[in-house]
Design a protein around this nucleic acid. Structure first.
Length: 414
RNA sequence: GGAGAGGUGGCCGAGUGGUUGAAGGCGCAGCAUUGGAAAUGCUGUGUACUCUUUCCGGGUACCGAGGGUUCGAAUCCCUCCCUCUCCGCCA
């Protein structure tokens, strides 16, 4: 949600932003007019109510006032009705407005237009034909998509044996590393109510991505960002408690409606994956800084794992409506033969905090909305990257050294 | 799943139809007292929206949520939600 004051004072700014982001489902002129209607109706209703309240006080010793109030009531009820209707429409339109953009977000329509700002590491050389993660998973019997489909549905899978051990090791290690860097660990609910999804921007923008639980006001979380940011809803945080650095490990459920094709081979795009997530609540002045800090953490983890990667500044068209600026980190997948996204790191500024009512007491006791940052640490995709980069022949996959204390073995063999 | 209790301001807690936005207490802030502090005393202290205004005020709304009765509801009626306790079941 953006600040409605900006819309009132500078509608052209909002209009330009919508055009830039191709948010064509909100008519700014209609929105501005509706807001004016809202305010004038509000004033009318409040004036009527003020008169009613005044007259009510006289009723005790002036029976005639009662008649007057009775007449007023009809008018008030009518005004309140139209006020409520306008408010619903207004909120609905406001909820679709995208966040503003950072100045340095590149133009462009798709991930092909993202701007590479850094690359790190060397793509490995193989004296054999490297396999992709799906082929490796089957060959070493560590990924089982067929049985995932059998017990659940296509798009669900099992990690098995040393694959499962490696995955557990990665997630545990990543959590430990972030805890060392000052993050507080959470284990979160894996379901969230509609207001939580709305507050984090997943409603209305990504409504077709969520699994709704039948007959409940609950959906399976698409990311622990939803519950971790919602954690502080309707709270006023002490300024000296900022920044709050939260980390959680959770499953993530996504319907992935209509996203089949080449990119979905293996377990790269599935209905349930697992993620260690970084969440930051900070003051507006600090959000750039902590956005970069989360990126540094992502890079640190990939570097420790010895994975080659690049960092991209995500372009306008590839940046979700709630985002102000986003860095993706793409690891190199030799079996696939290219870079693929493993981390995504978004500065949401006050877009979520405004919807959720998360504020802090600023200078002079004034209450301001915090900024939030949501950034991946690691997911199953990183395990896939490890498999592809650490295959040493068609018969051996090594384990990155930093994970060996957690796996208890240093290679996976046939 | 069964039974019961309860939801009032940052917290505790009064309050069953009319100057109650809400007593009292705690907490917090300022001032006084003090060599300094504790203790004590005095004063102040909700939120949101909106108008005028820009820090002084006006209006409206808010006592879990929604609806109803009434000139008027924290207070009466209905529906729902949530929390807690006990029993059952259970990782």
């Amino acid at each position: 949600m953006i600040d409605i004051a900006i819309l009132r004072n500078n509608p052209d700014l909002v209009r330009a932003n919508c055009e830039l982001r191709r948010a064509d489902n909100v008519d700014i002129d209609a929105l501005v007019k509706l807001d004016k209607d809202y305010l004038s109706t509000l004033h009318r209703v409040e004036e009527l109510r003020a008169r009613r309240n005044q007259l009510s006080k006289e009723c005790k010793d002036n029976p005639e006032a009662r008649v007057a109030v009775k007449e007023l009531k009809v008018e008030i009820a009518e005004g309140e009705r139209s006020l409520a209707e306008i408010k619903i429409d207004l909120d609905q339109m406001l909820s679709w407005l995208p966040n503003f953009l950072a100045d340095d977000v590149p133009e462009g329509h798709s991930d092909a237009d993202n701007e590479e700002i850094k690359s790190y590491g060397h793509q490995p050389d193989f004296d054999f034909e490297p396999l992709d993660h799906q082929a490796l998973g089957e060959r070493f019997d560590i990924i089982d998509t067929h049985r995932g489909a059998k017990v659940a549905q296509s798009g669900y899978f099992f990690w098995k044996g040393k694959g499962a051990q490696l995955t557990s090791a990665l997630f545990f290690w990543a959590q430990q590393e972030l805890i060392k860097r000052g993050f507080t660990l959470f284990i979160t609910p894996c379901a969230a109510k509609a207001s939580t999804l709305f507050g984090t921007g997943y409603l209305p923008f990504f409504s077709d991505q969520t699994y709704q639980i039948q007959d409940e006001d609950l959906a399976l979380i698409g990311t622990s960002e939803q519950t971790l940011v919602g954690y502080h809803a309707d709270e006023i945080l002490a300024a000296d408690s900022l920044p709050k650095l939260h980390v959680a490990y959770s499953p993530c459920f996504r319907t992935e409606a209509g996203s089949y094709g080449k990119e979905s081979r293996g377990i790269f795009r599935v209905h349930q994956f697992h993620k260690v997530e970084q969440i930051v609540f900070c003051t507006p002045d600090d959000s750039d800084r902590y956005h970069r800090l989360c990126l540094e953490n992502e890079e640190f983890l990939l570097q420790e794992l010895g994975l080659p990667y690049r960092v991209v500044n995500v372009c306008i068209g590839d940046l979700g409506a709630p985002g102000y600026k986003k860095y993706d980190v793409d690891a190199y997948f030799p079996g696939y033969g290219g870079y693929r996204e493993v981390c995504s790191n978004t500065n949401l500024t006050d877009f979520q905090s405004r919807r959720l009512g998360i504020r802090f007491a600023g200078d002079g006791g004034r209450k301001e909305y915090v900024h939030t940052i949501s950034a991946t640490a690691v997911t199953d995709r990183v395990v896939c990257a490890i498999l592809e980069n650490y295959q040493r022949s068609n018969d051996v996959i090594e384990i990155p050294e930093v994970l060996q204390p957690y796996t208890g073995f240093d290679k996976i063999t046939l």
